[in-house]
Amino acid sequence: MSMAVQCIDCPSFYAIPSGIGFSDDFKNLVKNIKNQIQEICEPLTIGRPLEEAVKSLIEIYKECSEENWDGYNALPITANAFEEARNIINLLPTSVPMPEILAEPGGEVGFEWRKGDRLVFVLSVGGKHKINYAGIFGSNKLHGSEYFGESLPSVIIENLRRLYS
């Protein structure tokens, strides 16, 4: 008996490279691919966690786009941070559960994956093409930052794999 297994290193099929073509034909192609993906996902449940994550992100953006949204003088979530967070959602490997999405007081959008006590990985984006991340894996801890473009940095994928292996 054979079974299909999702590759954790493979990019999400929701992610479509946007910076590799600039002609009208390319833009139409991207639009068509997006429509096709939407059509495929609509009758299935595979698109649901992604839709819910985007919905949650939109809610957070609406609630936290003005200063002091937390009552403790937090900075607003900017449109750039929102766009970058939406890209992150699209870039996540489909084998990884959708994270909880949070607004951080510094105006960044945070993503939290928690598997259990002291098994947590968190990252955030603030619209500056930079990911700040931190993880607790039992007694091991790490943190760092990475610049990113159209794909998730491998260190992020590796840490998500470590959490869910």
């Binding site: 607790i136 801890k141 943190h143």
Partner: peptide
């Protein structure tokens, strides 16, 4: 001043 380190410590406090 590093946001990633702030996160890690905030995670420890939350735990």
């Amino acid at each position: 001043s590093e946001k990633s380190e702030q996160k890690l410590i905030a995670m420890e406090l939350a735990e």
